[in-house]
Amino acid sequence: MYRVGMVPSSQVVPSSEAVPVFVRLAAHPVRWRLLGELAAGDHRVRELTERLGQPQNLVSYHLRLLRDGGLVTTRRSSFDARDSYYHLDLDQCAGALSTTASSLHPALRPSTPAVPSGARVLFACTGNSARSPMAEALLRHRTDGRLDVTSAGSHPKPELHPTAILVLRKEFGLDLAGMRPRHLDSVAGRRFDYVITLCDKVREVCPEFDDATVRSHWSIPDPATASGSDDYEAFARIAVEIDTRVRHLLPVLAANHSGGHRD
């Protein structure tokens, strides 16, 4: 006989073997904090150790579990090859979360985020000839021009890389022909809500901005220095990675900027 307070046999909580991988990985307090830190940008082990206040061997252990679970990836620093940057694969997380939520109840499937407006975003890399102008164009495109998006470099090249222009035109239908590299000095004094560095070298020299500016780092290699691959292929691969990160930036911007600039 079924009584109030009893759980019907058809609704019994599944065994631990049926718990989704994402839940098992994210449930640990240290791993959850690591996911949170990496959600804001790429970091080195020593930075994560400082932020969590935990021993490096413990942090490295949990990072390895997250990497083995496919949620985190690593990439050697282009500034100092002895360092590695850890990156949260948000596409993998989104897929895992969607699967987890849908398995619990169809009503928990994620909804499409609103398009942000009003934020001021600066993308920076060394030469401002490929990565940062691609990010600028892609974010402007995905927000229908609603944001104040700029890019600059610490050592700007004379002009944009021709393959970057070609890739964005062929793969995304975007025209970069009218853009010109600019120096970071040219945006000094301007206020930005977000400053995102796209290469490890410029992260070390990027100037400080307003105290309210959110700083984030995307550790992305320079496609112009890629070896052993076709030039177009290398640029296309980097463009897709930047576009993926831009897409995942949109919900953050939408949550914090519903329109208009901050005072």
Score class of each variant (00 low, 15 high):
Pro14Asn: 10
Cys125Tyr: 08
Ser10Phe: 14
Gly178Phe: 04
Arg109Met: 13
Thr126His: 08
Glu47His: 07
Ala40Lys: 06
Leu104Lys: 06
Val205Tyr: 10
Ile220Gly: 02
Ser10Pro: 00
Ser15His: 11
His248Arg: 04
Leu249His: 03
Arg140Ile: 00
Gly145Gln: 00
Pro158Ile: 04
Ser10Thr: 13
Gly178Thr: 08
Pro207His: 08
Ala114Asn: 12
Ala254Phe: 13
Ser219Gln: 03
Cys199Ser: 14
Leu38Phe: 04
Tyr86Glu: 07
Gly70Ser: 09
Thr225Tyr: 11
Asp230Lys: 04
Asp193Phe: 12
Ser84Pro: 00
Asp185Glu: 15
Val4Gly: 04
Leu38Val: 01
Arg247Tyr: 03
Pro55Asn: 01
Trp218Tyr: 05
Phe192Cys: 11
Arg262Leu: 09
His105Arg: 06
Val167Gly: 11
Leu58Asn: 01
Gln92Trp: 05
Arg3Tyr: 10
Ala39Phe: 06
Val115Ser: 14
Gly189Ala: 14
Glu208Thr: 03
Val240Ser: 08
Gly228Trp: 02
Gly69Ile: 03
Ala114Arg: 14
Gln11Ala: 08
Phe209Asp: 03
Glu136Gly: 06
Val240Trp: 04
Val45Gly: 00
Ser117Thr: 09
Leu34Pro: 05
Leu66Glu: 10
Arg24Asp: 15
Gly70Lys: 08
Trp32Pro: 00
Ser219Pro: 01
Ser229Gln: 13
Asp175Arg: 10
Tyr194Phe: 15
Leu249Ala: 09
Asn128Thr: 08
Leu249Cys: 03
Arg247Cys: 11
Ser186Val: 04
Leu35Pro: 04
Ala119Arg: 06
Ser84Cys: 10
Ala124Ser: 14
Gly189Tyr: 11
Glu233Ala: 15
Leu52Ser: 05
Thr49Val: 15
Met6Tyr: 02
Ser15Pro: 00
Ile242Asn: 02
Thr197Pro: 05
Asp263Gly: 11
Ile196Pro: 01
Asp80Lys: 00
Leu174Cys: 06
Val12Ile: 02
Ser10Asn: 09
Leu108Thr: 05
Phe192Trp: 10
His248Ser: 03
His155Val: 12
Ser16Val: 15
Glu208Gly: 07
Val187Cys: 06
Gly189Lys: 13
Cys93Lys: 01
Phe22Ser: 10
Glu171Met: 12
Ile238Asp: 04
Tyr2Thr: 09
Asn57Thr: 07
Ala236Met: 07
Arg3Pro: 01
Lys157Ala: 15
Arg215Asp: 00
Arg31Trp: 05
Tyr61Met: 07
Pro251Val: 13
Thr163Cys: 07
Phe192Glu: 10
Val121His: 00
Ala18His: 14
Met6Ile: 00
Leu25Gln: 15
Thr112Phe: 11
Thr197Asp: 08
Asp263Phe: 03
Asp222Arg: 13
